[in-house]
Design a binder for these strands. Structure first.
Lengths: 193, 193
DNA sequence: TGCTAAGCGGAGGCTGACTCCGTTTAGCGT
DNA sequence: ACGCTAAACGGAGTCAGCCTCCGCTTAGCA
């Protein structure tokens, strides 16, 4: 890869990251190219789809989440608190950019997209945490990890919506994602506790 | 309203309903106008926004849901089974058209949109069922009805996604919306049962 | 049967996705 | 130091869909 191409690539990811943060992941790609000072053609050459760009922006953070899952799985003796802690991180992560939670949910099982591939390790990490809790008899075992992820995505999209609303109309009741996560976790635990 | 205008309106709603069913609520409005045999201008005059059209398509069903909530609230002595039953209907309803669950969630608190106004009674009905359960000490009282709706929306979007996937790749694990609803309901119940 | 308000429809403007190809340039080999 | 060439660039152009505007048509009242 030529040095100039690498510079442009990095610049694009940087600009995309901040554009996603302020305008959500549906930001116009032409805007991103313009702000990065490159032509739209350059953006598309490097990132043929929007998801490729999103994946590039998220790559580091995903790896981090996957690592944390691994550490929690190995060092934490209590599977319940391990999953709770990790899902809290996940929810916070998915709330970073408006629209991200839906994109992640849509991509998560599709290894043909860049975003899907980038998700894989993170997902595996989460699935492992859930699985250990299930084996230990803490969580009900008829639920898959993607079920859990789907619910988390719901929590986040709800919180996003509420945040937007609160900006326009200050007396919107606040929605606490941690509360909803607590509801979900409680629902996941086995009956007899 | 002139007779021809009324005819066109009805035809549009009819076509929209079937288009939404096959292509989701993001179907091109120009397609809908074409299929209905009217100009795009006519569609926009009658339904200035996409949401107005969606609201018209859903109006009947929403009223039905609101009524059912009322009946359940008054006749059912057990608030738990009442909410369970009603949420099952709600989830089934939101799964009718791809994308609907997100649209409903986004519109639900915004009385300025037609869809929001159409939702109101249904939402009030659901909120009443939840409230009665909370007053009876069956459900935890720190959760609002819109929290519940957010989770249900998450369930439905997850199921939609899974259905699409299953069409392409037959060995996708099935996702059972009723199972997820059960997780949520379980999470909603108070600790000591 | 004439009149007119209500209704019609589609051309046209706009935005954003995505492609294609003539031009530019990094950086290797001499 | 200097060609040379593959790699990279960029933006004009095409396409799709949203939405508006306005001249034409017509239902249906008087």
């Amino acid at each position: 890869m030529r040095a100039d191409a690498l510079r442009n690539r990095e610049r694009l990811v940087e600009v995309a990251q901040s554009a996603f943060a302020t305008n959500g992941i549906e930001t116009s790609l032409e805007d991103i190219a313009r702000q990065a000072g490159v032509g739209i053609g350059t953006l598309y050459r490097r990132f043929p789809t929007r998801e490729d760009l999103i994946a590039a922006v998220l790559a580091e953070r995903y790896l981090k989440l996957a690592e944390v899952a691994l550490v929690l799985a190995e060092e934490r003796e209590d599977p319940d608190s391990a999953l709770t802690e990790w899902l809290t991180l996940l929810v916070e992560h998915m709330a970073l950019y408006r629209g991200l939670s839906i994109a992640v949910k849509e991509a998560m099982h599709d290894q043909t997209t860049a975003l899907g591939r980038t998700c894989k390790e993170m997902i595996d990490g989460g699935a492992r945490l859930l699985g250990e809790g299930q084996r230990a008899g803490v969580f009900r075992s008829d639920v898959t990890f993607s079920d859990v992820l789907a619910l988390c995505s719901g929590i986040v999209t709800a919180a996003e919506r509420r945040t937007e609303k609160a900006a326009a109309d200050p007396d919107t009741p606040p929605l606490n994602p941690y509360l909803l996560l607590d509801v979900v976790l409680r629902g996941l635990r086995v009956e007899d506790r």
